[in-house]
Design a protein around this nucleic acid. Sequence first.
DNA 1: ATTCGCTTGTGAAACGAATCACGATGCCCA
DNA 2: TGGGCATCGTGATTCGTTTCACAAGCGAAT
Lengths: 204, 204
Amino acid sequence: MPKATVERLPLYLQCLQAMGDVESTVSSEELANTAGVNSANVRKDLSYLGSHGVRGVGYNRLELCDQLRRALGLIEKWSVVIVGIGNLGSALANYRGFDASGFNVVGLYDADPAKRGHQVDGHYVKSMDDLKLDIKEHDVSMAILTTPAAAAQGVADLLIEAGIQSILNFAPSLLKVPNEINCRQVDLATELQILSYYQAAHQA
Amino acid sequence: MPKATVERLPLYLQCLQAMGDVESTVSSEELANTAGVNSANVRKDLSYLGSHGVRGVGYNRLELCDQLRRALGLIEKWSVVIVGIGNLGSALANYRGFDASGFNVVGLYDADPAKRGHQVDGHYVKSMDDLKLDIKEHDVSMAILTTPAAAAQGVADLLIEAGIQSILNFAPSLLKVPNEINCRQVDLATELQILSYYQAAHQA
DNA sequence: ATTCGCTTGTGAAACGAATCACGATGCCCA
DNA sequence: TGGGCATCGTGATTCGTTTCACAAGCGAAT
């Protein structure tokens, strides 16, 4: 499945869920409009799912949701840890959107002893020493990294050693990870900078 | 300038800044390694800046930083408002990375009266009623949206009416905006879902 | 002054993704 | 039962981006 397609599947899922229960069937055209893409693109994307829409009618909404969830691996509930419980880490720990889509935050960790014992969203913040054992014990495969940039690589190495397979990194620093580890970088300042470019260009 | 290039410029800037003051000159190869891209790609990207590296030597690090900042429009200091002061909004208000790259958070707004008067990072949370006037008065051109999904479109419309030109939207809902408005969508759950896909695929 | 090694800048080629265009197909209704 | 309409699935095309490959240029050393 093309990378570009994979990155659109969550969008489709979101759009379908937002449609409410009114419509039992959607056309590629409809979905394309709400998702802001070309309808042929939608059809091609969905065709990778082995999805079978019905010609003349469209796709069954609930069935399509199901297929998307299955394709995205959202059938199983993934366990996630968050490392770095600053402002952003706390916010993510409290974020309800994760649970809603099949992710289960099972532990919060921070290197700063002052943070320990504090409770965030019903979880006690634990020490980095607990990290490795917890990951192995609870079969955690995903981690969210919200440490300062300087600490990110070290923590990533630790996580990988403990058996983590996917990392979502919010620290503004590029991680060096082995090929078999999935890693995505989200940088808030970067996003603003991109906007800044277009805005500056627009004014010129 | 190609879209793909624009999205890499902040990365280059980040890499160059992280290099410390040791090196006064960098080759495309070096920068490519730290940024995780192909060196020819780096050179082509930089060539759009009208940058002139020196053959046999490389690029002057500081000069290149400067050129990147100029290209990205980071010379002028942008004023930013944050709307929706929940967990994520508060975290972003406290985030130091924005100031560091030329953005200045000038106001926080929330529809919930219970939030008013609370202070976050030295700013009082204000009412939505103040939003429009503040934007016009202080010539604010960028907004960060961290409201619940259901409120996002309404707030976006309000912001645009008030003269905002760029929106960074963290709400998990796609915004309909006029063409001339720059809008970027960052969805945390989406990111995890993409990771989920690759991880599930990897295990199969 | 000449040679050598390194690095840039860029045309050309390869690749991947988006879009177009249309045949194929299923549903509804007369 | 047949015709018409709506929509899918997909080959062909176009577009944008990445990568390759190499000539041109600069600096250092001899």
